[in-house]
Design a protein around this nucleic acid. Sequence first.
DNA 1: TACAATTAATAAAAATAATTTATAGGTGAA
DNA 2: TTCACCTATAAATTATTTTTATTAATTGTA
Lengths: 295, 295
Amino acid sequence: MNIKDVQYFVKLTELKSYSDTAHFFSVSQPTITYAIKRMESEFDAELIIRKSYANSITLTPAGQQFLIHARKILRENNLIKKDLTRIKNDKLKMGFPPIISDYLIPQVFDQFKDRGLLSRIKPVRSGSKELLQQLYDGKIDISLLGTTSFPKAANFDFKIIKTHHFKIIASDQRKFNQPMSINELKNEDFLILDSSSVHQLIINGLIERYNVFTNVIYQTGDYKLLLDLVRQNKGISFIAETALQGEDGIQELEISDVDFPPFYLMLVYRASTRKGPVLQKVIDIFDSLGDETGD
Amino acid sequence: MNIKDVQYFVKLTELKSYSDTAHFFSVSQPTITYAIKRMESEFDAELIIRKSYANSITLTPAGQQFLIHARKILRENNLIKKDLTRIKNDKLKMGFPPIISDYLIPQVFDQFKDRGLLSRIKPVRSGSKELLQQLYDGKIDISLLGTTSFPKAANFDFKIIKTHHFKIIASDQRKFNQPMSINELKNEDFLILDSSSVHQLIINGLIERYNVFTNVIYQTGDYKLLLDLVRQNKGISFIAETALQGEDGIQELEISDVDFPPFYLMLVYRASTRKGPVLQKVIDIFDSLGDETGD
DNA sequence: TACAATTAATAAAAATAATTTATAGGTGAA
DNA sequence: TTCACCTATAAATTATTTTTATTAATTGTA
C-alpha cells in the first residue's frame, strides 16, 4: 500500500467526489478510481459505495474502519516530516500560553540562557487549547500548558510543574463580607478571558451549576488588560492565581460554598517525540522546577 | 512512501543487515538499499549509518525518530487487515480470562444467546496480561480483563463492569485469630497463580514491601486447581474474590495492616475499532451489568 | 421523455517506479 | 595480504501507476 493512495482515499471521503479529489491532487480522475480499487483488492473488501452522480459517495462499514486507520497513518506520516525537519534544524518549536509563560519564564530564563537553549527554541505564543491542538498536529514540538485535567489522548507525555488554584477577584476598592457565598455575586458585572483559554470552560460549568456570572460585560484574550479592568473596578473576574503574582490593587474573594478544579501548570510533548539533547534539556529544567510528575 | 519500504526499514533495524533483510523478504539485496535511499531522499535526512561489515548498522537521530513513527504506521496497517477481516466475517474474536469468565459468563449467557451472539463470537481463553497484548496486536478485538489499574496506552476504551477485592485465603480446617497482621503469615506455605495472571505482580509487590509469602511452594495457571489445593490445606493463597463465588471449604483471612489494590473486572477494546452491530451488542450487554464507567 | 451535463469505470498506451542481475568497492578477521 | 562478507551502483528488466480516450450510468431540466 502506498501512502499516496491513503491520502487519495481520505480526501475522497472528505470531498465525496472522485473528480474533485483528482483535481485537488492535480491528477486525472482514473488515478483516484484505480487507487481505491488497488486498496480494495489488497484488503479484499469494498470500501466505497459508488454512484455515478454528485456527492453520492458513501463508505461501507469496512470503509469506515479503514478511514479510522488511514487518518492515523497520515498523521504519523506527517509527524515524520515535522520531526525530521526539527532534528535537521536542531530547533524546537515550543508553545507558550501567556499567563503561564509570564509566571514561569522568569524562573527559568537564566538556565535557558546558560545552557544555550535560547537560540534553539522557536517560541509560539497562543492559548492553551490552541497549543494542545498544534502539538497534536506536529506544528509545535513541546508546550507549556495551563489545564484543569490531564491530556487524555495519551499520545502526550506531560510533567506537572505546579498545581495552582482559580480565584474570584475584584478591585481593592470594593468591600465584601468574607468568606462569602457564590450567590452574593449573582448580580455583579463579570469580565472573562475568551475561548482561547481554559477559563471559559470552567466559567460555563459554574454558570450551569450555580446560575451565577450571567452578566458577562466584556471578554478578552489579554489577561493583563483583564486585570487592569478589574483593578479599575469595571467588574469582577475569575482567573488562575498564576496570573496574580505581584499584581496589586486586586483582592481575591474567599468563596465558602464552591470548589474550583485545580489549575495545572504543565509541560507537554508528544510521547512519540524522540528526546534529543535540546528537548531533554528543556524537560530537565522544568523538571527541577516541578514538584509532581505525571506520565 | 510505500508501506513495503517501511516494513523493509523496520526489519532492517531489527536484523541490522541489508542482506539478511533482503533474504527475509525474498528480494535481492539492492532492493533494500534502494528502499532506504528512497525514504532518505523523500524526507531529505540520513536515516542509517552504513558500514560494510556485519551487524554494523546504526540509526541516526533522524532514523531513531523515523523508527518510532514507522512502527506505528505498520501497526495501523496490520490493524486494517485484522479489522477488515473481522468485518468481512462478521465475527468478533473475544478474550476471556478464566477467573473473570467463570464469574461473568453465567450472568450474560442468556442475553448472548437471545441476541444471537453465540455464533458471532470466537472466544480466546488466556490470562489477562496475554489478552491485553493480543488486543493491542489486533489478534483479538475485545476482551474481558481483570486488572488493578486502567489500561494506560489510551489506544484502549474500557468499561468497568465491577470492582472486586483481593483476598488472602486458607483452608477452613485452619484456625486464625482475626483480624490479624500480615506478619503472622510469614512462615506459611504459599500457593500462587502464575505469571499469566495479574496476581503475581501484586504478590511481588507484597513480598518486596512486607517480606512475606517468601515460601512459594507451588505455582499454577489453573485457579480451580489452586483453590482445591488451598481447600486441602496444602498452603494459603492470594486471589481476587471473583474466584471465590460459591466455593466452600475456604476461608478469607482478615488482614488488618495491609491494603490491597482494587481488582477491576472490565471490558476492553481498541478505541480505533469501529462499533459494528455485534460489538455494540456486546458492549451494551456488559454495560447493563456494570456499575461504573471509564473511558 | 429525451437530452444535456456530470460523474465514475474501463481499456490501452505511456510514463514512472521498483526490482533484479551483475559487478565494484569497502571492511574486519585470519 | 588475502579471504569472506557486506553494501553501493549501473543498467536492464519487470511491475506499477498514471494518463488519454472513451463508455456507461445517473440526475436535472427542457
